Simulated scan of single mutants.
Amino acid sequence: MRLVLASASPARLSVLRAAGADPAVEVSDVDEDALLAAHPDAAPAAVVTLLAAAKAAAVADRLTGDCAVVGCDSMLLVGGELVGKPHDPETARRRWKAMAGRTGELLTGHAVLRLADGAVAQEAEGHAGTGVRFAEPTDAELEAYLATGEPLAVAGAFTLDGLGGWFVEGIDGDPSNEIGISLPLLRRLLGAVGVSVVDLWAPRG
C-alpha cells in the first residue's frame, strides 16, 4: 500500500519515517482561512479535523491508482483561544507572553482516505489532544528563540522536537501528536480503512 502524506511538515514526515514508513509527500493547496471563515462556530476539535479532511481531499483529487492519503492539521488551544501558526515575530511574541507558565492542549485533526483506482473507497477521521506545560523563558531567551524563525511557522509558536523543547516543562498524552501526527490514532484510522501499519514499514537494511 502506497502512503501519501498531504502535508509540508518536515516534523510529520520525520515521525513517520522514524516509525518505519516512507510516505510520498504531496502538499495541498487548501485555503485554510476561507475554510475557517466558513465554519465560525465549529468546536476546536472539529476545526482541526475539518482542515485535515480538506487537505487529504485536495491531494486525493490529484492522485491515481491505489494508495492511502493522510491529512493532518494542528492548532494550540490555550486560554480558551485556538491558535495556529503565528507567521510573524510580534504575533509569536504575544502568544508566548500569554502562554508562558500555563498549560495548553495541542489538537491535531487526522483524515485518512483510501483510494482504489484513484477514487475514494474508504475514509476515516478523528483528532488527538496532548497537553503541554510551558516554561517561562526569560526575555532574552524568548527574543533569541524568535530570532531563529522556528516558532513563526509552527502551530502554537513552539516545537517539542526542536529549539522550542527547551521551553516545555512537560506533556500529558501522546508525544507524537505534540509533533503533529499521532501514531496511535493514525494506526487506528488506517486500520479502519483496511490498512495495517506493518504493511507500510519500509524494508530494513
Rank of each mutant, 00 (worst) to 15 (best):
D41H: 15
A42H: 11
A42S: 15
P44V: 15
A45I: 03
A46N: 03
A46S: 14
L50K: 00
L50Q: 07
L51D: 00
L51K: 04
A52Y: 04
A53Y: 01
A53D: 12
A54W: 05
A57H: 12
A58W: 08
A58G: 14
V59C: 13
V59H: 04
A60Q: 04
L63I: 06
L63G: 10
L63D: 12
G65E: 08
D66W: 07
C67K: 05
C67R: 08
C67Q: 06
A68F: 06
V70G: 02
G71I: 01
C72T: 15
D73M: 12
M75I: 11
V78D: 00
G79L: 10
E81V: 12
L82G: 05
V83H: 00
G84E: 04
G84R: 06
G84D: 04
K85M: 09
K85T: 02
P86Y: 03
P86D: 02
A92N: 05
A98T: 02
M99G: 00
M99A: 04
G101Y: 07
R102H: 15
E105A: 13
L107R: 13
L107G: 06
T108H: 10
G109K: 04
G109L: 09
G109D: 06
H110W: 07
H110Y: 07
H110D: 01
V112L: 11
L113W: 02
R114E: 08
L115D: 01
A116H: 14
G118A: 13
G118V: 09
A119C: 13
A119G: 08
V120C: 02
A121P: 04
A121G: 08
E123Y: 07
E123Q: 15
E123N: 07
A124Y: 05
E125M: 15
A128C: 14
G129M: 13
G129V: 14
T130E: 05
T130M: 12
G131M: 09
V132K: 02
F134Y: 07
F134A: 00
